[in-house]
C-alpha cells in the first residue's frame, strides 16, 4: 500500500515537531509539573526524608510576613513600572517616527540599555544610586538637596530599582511600537490634519487606537517581566533593606537555594505563576488586542 501524500506530509510534520517538543518537554513542561508536585512536599535536597504535607507549604506561605511583603512589593513594582514603561516607549517611538536629525543615533541610544546585560547595568546603577554617587550629584547641582543612599533607604529602594527597569526595557518596547507605528498609513494622519487635529489629538485619536495590538503585546510582556523581576534585586539590594525590595521571585530563590527548602520555594513559585496567569487572563478578556 502506498502512503498517500497527505499522510506522508503529516508524518514529516510530526517528525519535525518531535525534537523541539522533546526539548520543551524536558526543559520546560517537566520542570513546571515537577515544581508543582514538589510544592506539596517538605522537600529538602539534602535530607532523604521528604514527607507529603499537602497544602501545608501554601498555608505557611500566607502566614509568612516576608512572603506577604513580597507579594505587596511585586504588585507595587508591577503597577508602577508597566504603565510608565508602556507610555514612555510609545512616546519614544512616536518621536523616533518623525523625521528628526540624528534619528538613527537616538534609536540606537535608546535601544542599547535593553541589550546590555542586566547584571552590568545593575552594578553601574548601584554606584549611581550610592550616597556619593552620580544621582545625588546631579540632584545637588540642580539645587535639590539629596544626600541619601537610594538603595538602603526602605522607601526609595523599590522606586530606584523600578526606574532602572523602566530605563532598561523602554528601548526594547520602543522598537516594537515603532514597527506598529510604521504600519499606520500616512494618509490617516493627513486626513486627521485636514479634519483639524493637532499633533496631540493625532497622537491620542489616531495613533494610540491604531497601535493597540502592539500595546497589548507590550503590556503583557511588561507584566510578565515585572512579576518575575530578579536580576536587579539580586545584584543591587538582596531584597533589603528589611525586605523592602524582596519580590516574589527573589523569595523563591532565597527559600529554594539559600534555605534548602525546595518544597516551600516551589509553592511560592506556583503562587507567582498563578498570579501572572490570572492577570494575563483578565487582560485578555477586558482589554483585547484588536484595534478595530
Amino acid at each position: 500500500m502506498t502512503i498517500k501524500p497527505k499522510n506522508e506530509q503529516k508524518i514529516w510534520a510530526y517528525t519535525f515537531l518531535a525534537f523541539p517538543l522533546l526539548l520543551l518537554s524536558i526543559f520546560v513542561f517537566f520542570p513546571i509539573a515537577f515544581a508543582f508536585i514538589v510544592s506539596f512536599f517538605d522537600w529538602n535536597l539534602l535530607i532523604p526524608d521528604k514527607p507529603f504535607v499537602g497544602l501545608g507549604n501554601y498555608i505557611e506561605l500566607f502566614k509568612d510576613p516576608v512572603f506577604v511583603k513580597a507579594i505587596k512589593n511585586t504588585v507595587i513594582y508591577t503597577l508602577g513600572v508597566v504603565p510608565v514603561q508602556t507610555f514612555l516607549s510609545l512616546f519614544l517611538a512616536f518621536i523616533m517616527n518623525q523625521k528628526l536629525r540624528g534619528r538613527a543615533f537616538f534609536r540606537t541610544a535608546f535601544y542599547i540599555p535593553a541589550i546590555t546585560s542586566s547584571v552590568v547595568t545593575s552594578i553601574i546603577f548601584v554606584w549611581i544610586y550610592s550616597k556619593p554617587g552620580l544621582l545625588n550629584y546631579l540632584l545637588s547641582s540642580a539645587g535639590v538637596d539629596s544626600n541619601i543612599d537610594w538603595l538602603t533607604n526602605p522607601s526609595t529602594v523599590l522606586p530606584a530599582i523600578m526606574m532602572l527597569n523602566v530605563w532598561t526595557t523602554s528601548g526594547y518596547f520602543m522598537v516594537s511600537f515603532l514597527a506598529g507605528l510604521q504600519n499606520i498609513p500616512a494618509s490617516l494622519y493627513e486626513a486627521a490634519r485636514i479634519d483639524g487635529a493637532s499633533q496631540w489629538k493625532q497622537f491620542w485619536k489616531i495613533m494610540v487606537p491604531m497601535v493597540r495590538p502592539v500595546t497589548y503585546f507590550v503590556v503583557v510582556m511588561s507584566l510578565i517581566g515585572c512579576f518575575q523581576v530578579f536580576d536587579q534585586i539580586f545584584v543591587m539590594s538582596s531584597g533589603g533593606p528589611d525586605n523592602a525590595s524582596t519580590t516574589m521571585s527573589y523569595f523563591v530563590y532565597q527559600n529554594s537555594f539559600k534555605y534548602f527548602r525546595f518544597g516551600f520555594g516551589a509553592a511560592s513559585a506556583v503562587v507567582l505563576a498563578l498570579l501572572i496567569f490570572t492577570v494575563t487572563a483578565v487582560q485578555k478578556k477586558y482589554f483585547p488586542p484588536e484595534a478595530y
Binding site: 516576608v66 538602603t152 533607604n153 526602605p154 531584597g239 533589603g240 533593606p241 528589611d242 525586605n243 532565597q254 527559600n255 539559600k258 534555605y259 534548602f260
Partner: peptide
C-alpha cells in the same frame, strides 16, 4: 538555627539602621 535566621536577623538590623 536554620539558614533563614541570617536574612531575618539582617532584615531586623536594616530596619533599625535604615528605618
Amino acid at each position: 538555627m536554620q539558614e533563614r535566621w541570617f536574612d531575618e536577623t539582617n532584615a531586623a538590623m536594616q530596619a533599625m539602621f535604615y528605618k
